[in-house]
Design a protein around this nucleic acid. Structure first.
Lengths: 341, 341
DNA sequence: GTGAAAGCGCTAACAC
DNA sequence: GTGTTAGCGCTTTCAC
């Protein structure tokens, strides 16, 4: 274990001062060519690497952003994270990733920890519990300490910060309309995430589409349940009654479980039953039949969020910053589960 | 934007010295009760939080580990990461996550960047390209600089560091045996990852099981291809010949694509064709029929890797450290794709 | 009990 | 051109 070589080491070895070395390495015009060459060569030879910690402390800048993800096992978040990471690295920033596991307490704790000099800003999707409790005090504290925050997907409207969201209402509206246009009469709506803002918006889009088409809302066609077991039972029960001819699924589990049960019961998809779901990842394509989805452009969300944050970090006159909300358009991906011949 | 309060601020305000404040906050016995109380109260009131950067620089310790993941969209890695993060936080460490995207160059670059004081150690799964090129020089450099590394899943045998792996050979052997015991005669082996050590081991386990059963290896039953399109074509072609009655899939894509095509062609699963795959995540359960899998205990791998690394970091006499390799046992999860009645 | 001072590794204003 | 000095925020030894 050889100790890392520092500026001091180089200075001593070359009989110059530390500042000369520092300047030489940053190619300052103050330093003579000869000395520069000597320093550069010696540094390269000894594999000198500046200590990032020291530099950050000095510069009061870490070139690191903190990313708070509720659940990395959810492919949507994994994709967004991937987009964030890519753009951050591209702009010379590191990414400190923490996972709130949907817990308010952990969210608070993690953010506080990172906010003590470790990061220059946050990108975050609010934990489920936080959204349920509507406790946003920690965000306010951090914002007022001068650390910028960009929220994505699950955002707190009331907060004065940048946001990147998907047009959940519109995409649900469009998806439902699509089902109607293709002959669906009794569209069921399935959701396990009605406690999240995005879940509510999607449900409202569905309702609006039905209203527009003058179709009465039927309560028995709407299944909202956060518990996976009772949700599954209700879906199975609904499908058995054959009361529905199309399914609008608000989250990934809802879509796949509906398809699984429908196939089991003997529905022909899409002939007897059309299905559209919100989903990310390869899986919707791999199901048989492949699942039509509302694609949320997750990597783009990550990209945009990162750009917003880094602009703010790099731009120093934060005093006059005006927060903005970027809406990413979704896309309806037609696959076999809605294809009527 | 109020500036963060520092030790100096407190000292000035209370007319004591910085060192007194520092000691009071760390509850040193050197400081009198009265002063302690004053300091503690003032600090709490002004929401003092020590600057982690400064502390790290001073202590030459960051309490942060760097995690290098080849691809966070792969649910296996997402799960391992989740396990790492959980254990790290539990032990008071942060996690700096970077993604190599299977690129050797990015792997080198990221590790070098993090190794300049930002982290105390690495947990890493080697990028595909790195494993192909067999270029491990950067790992050696980092190890010899005194920074510990723990590798998982995709490891470099030759390196002198801790490793956490799954018993790939054995689990493939067992899975193949299971198919044989249940009446399979002509087991196909599908792999898109034969360039990875784990891929090779699994293939060898499959071969060994056939040899043991005195069944000749048939080349046309073994499909190895890294290109997704030609792989898909070959699988489709094989299935059409009806030459096989069971499939041993070495990676996730192989398993699901085989199932999708088999269903399309009209195979009854598992009656005409049994399928076992290596897979993680919920998806194998959601397919119809549900997919039997070799489960790799991903979170446990993350947990173990983190424990190994933190033990090494916390234990200072690294001079005499003897690297160890931990093998995590897999489990065969029987689902509908192998259930014969 | 309290404080002065040095130092972690680096930068930069200022002096020579 | 090069060096001196101070300082980022914190810890810790040593002196009073």
């Amino acid at each position: 274990m050889k100790a890392k070589v520092t500026l001091k080491d180089i200075a001593k070895e070359l009989n110059v001062s530390v500042s000369t070395v520092s300047k030489a390495l940053s190619d300052s015009p103050e330093i003579g060519e000869a000395t520069k060459k000597r320093v550069l060569e010696f540094a390269a030879l000894n594999n000198y690497k500046p200590n990032t910690l020291a530099r950050n402390l000095k510069n009061q800048r870490t070139n690191t952003i903190g990313v708070l993800i509720p659940n990395i096992l959810n492919p949507f978040f994994a994709k967004v994270f991937s987009g964030i990471e890519q753009e951050a690295i591209k702009q010379g920033f590191n990414v400190l990733a923490v996972i709130s596991n949907e817990s308010l307490q952990k969210e608070k704790q993690m953010m506080e920890m990172l906010n003590n000099g470790l990061i220059d800003g946050f990108i975050i999707a609010i934990a489920e519990e936080t959204q349920k409790e509507q406790d946003f005090s920690h965000f306010k504290t951090i914002l007022s300490s001068g650390t910028p925050i960009v929220m994505f997907d699950r955002v707190a409207e009331s907060l004065n910060c940048d946001k990147v969201v998907v047009d959940d209402f519109d995409s649900a509206f469009n998806a439902t309309n699509y089902l109607l246009t293709n002959g669906a009469k009794r569209i069921a709506c399935l959701s396990m995430i009605d406690n999240l803002s995005v879940g509510k918006l999607r449900k409202e889009g569905y309702q609006k589409a039905l209203q527009n088409a003058k179709i009465p809302l039927e309560d028995n066609l709407i299944i909202i349940d956060e518990d996976i077991n009772s949700f599954n039972e209700k879906v199975m029960a609904l499908l058995k009654t054959k009361a529905t001819d199309a399914i609008f699924a608000i989250d990934e589990h809802a879509a796949t479980i509906a398809m699984k049960y429908a196939v089991q019961i003997g529905y022909k998809i899409p002939q007897d039953l059309m299905i559209i779901g919100f989903a990310d990842g390869l899986w919707s394509r791999r199901l048989t039949p492949s699942l039509s989805t509302v694609s949320q452009h997750a990597p783009e969300i990550g990209l945009k969020a990162t750009q917003l944050l880094l602009n703010q970090i790099k731009d120093n006159n934060a005093e006059f910053y005006k927060p903005q909300t970027v809406v990413i358009k979704t896309e309806l991906r037609h696959r076999d589960s809605t294809k009527r011949i």
